[in-house]
């Protein structure tokens, strides 16, 4: 199941999470980039390149977002650090101890900029909804 469908980047819909107030959620998003395309890594080498970025909002605080090791590729003589194919992005989210019990939605925003060897797509942001039940 795909949470969001864009031209070249897909994010698998996260499974609902049940957690206690004060706990830490370890959420792994599975990202897939259409064959032939790449998205810039979270730490591009060129200052003008738009990095991959994941942010979260909701009744949580973000402890850490971890991207995998990027690939180094050469496109038209330019050395780039990118992600291709399918890859995970791991996030540790902590639920404050005083969070009221009940259902909540944590929203992620994945900002990316994708290219192939001939063209680039304008930067896009995908919304990701993570349903959370706090016990």
């Amino acid at each position: 199941m795909q949470a969001q469908v864009n031209k070249v980047v897909f994010v698998a819909a996260p499974e609902p999470v049940v957690a206690k107030a004060g706990a830490t959620i370890d959420e792994v998003l599975k990202i897939t980039v259409r064959e032939g395309y790449h998205v810039n890594s979270d730490k591009p080498k060129d200052e003008f390149i738009i990095p991959l970025k994941l942010t979260w909002t909701g009744p949580v605080s973000v402890k850490q977002v971890t991207f995998p090791k990027a690939e180094e590729i050469d496109v038209n003589g330019q050395k780039l650090t990118v992600f291709t194919g399918s890859f995970p992005i791991r996030t540790q989210l902590s639920i404050p101890a005083n969070t009221p019990k009940g259902k909540a939605t944590v929203t992620g925003k994945l900002r990316y900029q994708a290219c192939n060897s001939e063209m680039c797509l304008r930067p896009m942001t995908l919304d990701i909804e993570l349903p959370v039940t706090i016990e």
Binding site: F48, I49, I50, N76, G77, S117, M119, C120, R122
Partner: peptide, 10 residues
């Protein structure tokens, strides 16, 4: 074009 566009730089 855009500054972040690799093929544009070519």
């Amino acid at each position: 074009w855009a500054t972040w566009c690799g093929p544009c730089k070519v």
